[in-house]
């Protein structure tokens, strides 16, 4: 069997959910995990529960903040020393930036953002969306190991009955040479919520929101549901919302369990970016809006009337 490594990040002292999704998908493979920097002890339990055998924690002064060069060097040396052949990560801001550089260090291939895969410890094949989800294809490696793979958050789901691993944590100092692009400062965004790409529930607004102030009614709904607020390209181009909220082909591609589209007509490039959502609710005054063709539950009505009632109903239901 090949040696398998999964790179993990943390969110509020727990392993990011996408790491657990990946681990849970690899029954019988006995994967190891690598983390960089401070390791929250509460994360050990999650990782072991979903099957992590050895957990490598790499530390060093040059690794306090993320840098593509520093992280890549540290993980490169770990892969070399242990002969890992398949290396996985979530398709997060860091995973997307780090893994291509790492794969290039080995002159190896990388498969980005699969939404499903089969891997038995010796062969890998994945499925990934292209053209922002307008099309799917099968992807395999043709070159030599090591092989690098990133996985879209929320796409696999958590395994309901995972097989536990030993979860042995070992710390090591990583030696990192000169880094030519270094973080000087991190400017925190205003939102404490999960990013759209990782959110479990998304409430999105379109051109029918009319202005940026009206997004407050979506924020209220999102607060009740613990959701993240998104927007269509039409709303972003009209200046109602910033680009980092855009869902679609020239924004973010998302796969939440619940996507609530408010006043979004459903342009092809928006549908491409959200069609893999598990359940879609659409609210629109136009009964012929294309969004209704993708919606599990469609409400033909005025979002300014529907959303406040929806918020109240969820409040009652969730006892808030």
């Amino acid at each position: 069997m090949s040696k398998t490594l999964v790179f993990t990040e943390f969110s509020k002292d727990h392993a990011k959910s996408v790491t657990l999704e990946i681990l849970g998908k690899m029954k019988g493979v006995k994967p190891d995990v690598v983390a960089i920097g401070d390791f929250p002890t509460s994360a050990k339990e999650d990782l072991a529960k979903y099957g992590a055998e050895n957990i490598h924690v790499l530390k060093g002064d040059a690794l306090k903040n993320y840098s593509p060069e520093g992280y890549a060097q540290a993980i490169h040396d770990l892969i070399k020393a242990n002969g890992y052949e398949y290396i996985f990560a979530g398709s997060t801001s860091i995973g997307k930036d780090l893994f291509p550089r790492l794969s290039s260090m080995f002159n190896s291939g990388m498969i980005s953002e699969v939404t499903n895969f089969s891997y038995d410890g010796s062969t890998f094949s994945g499925t990934r969306p292209l053209f922002a989800g307008k099309c799917l294809a099968k992807v395999e490696f043709t070159g030599a190991a090591p092989h690098f793979i990133t996985v879209r958050p929320n796409a696999l789901g958590l395994d309901a009955s995972p097989t536990a691993g030993a979860g042995n944590v070992s710390e090591a100092n990583a030696s990192v040479s000169e880094i030519k692009a270094l973080i000087k400062e991190i400017v925190k965004g205003t939102s404490e919520k999960l990013d759209l790409t990782e959110a479990n529930i998304i409430v999105s607004g379109g051109r029918a929101m009319k202005n940026s102030e009206n997004f407050s009614i979506l924020n209220q709904l999102a607060d009740v549901l613990g959701a993240t607020v998104g927007a269509s390209r039409a709303a972003v181009d009209a200046g109602y919302a910033p680009h980092n909220m855009q869902v679609g082909q020239t924004g973010k591609t998302v796969s939440p369990s619940l996507y609530i589209a408010c006043g979004i007509s459903g342009a092809i490039q928006h549908l491409a970016g959200m069609r893999t959502s598990k359940v879609i609710v659409a609210i629109n005054t136009d009964p012929d809006a294309p969004i209704f063709t993708k919606a599990d539950y469609g409400i033909v009505g005025d979002l300014f009337k529907v959303v406040p009632i929806l918020t109240q109903e969820f409040k009652n239901l969730l006892g808030k």
């Binding site: 989800g133 307008k134 070159g143 005054t285 009964p287 469609g298 033909v300 009505g301």
Partner: peptide, 26 residues
């Protein structure tokens, strides 16, 4: 050819969802 490390096949449209339920609240 040795620089091609990843192979694609089986390009296909994503599965269509069955029609959902629609409610009139005008």
């Amino acid at each position: 050819d040795a620089d091609r490390k990843v192979k694609y096949s089986q390009f296909q449209l994503p599965p269509e969802k069955p029609a959902g339920k629609k409610f009139d609240a005008m």
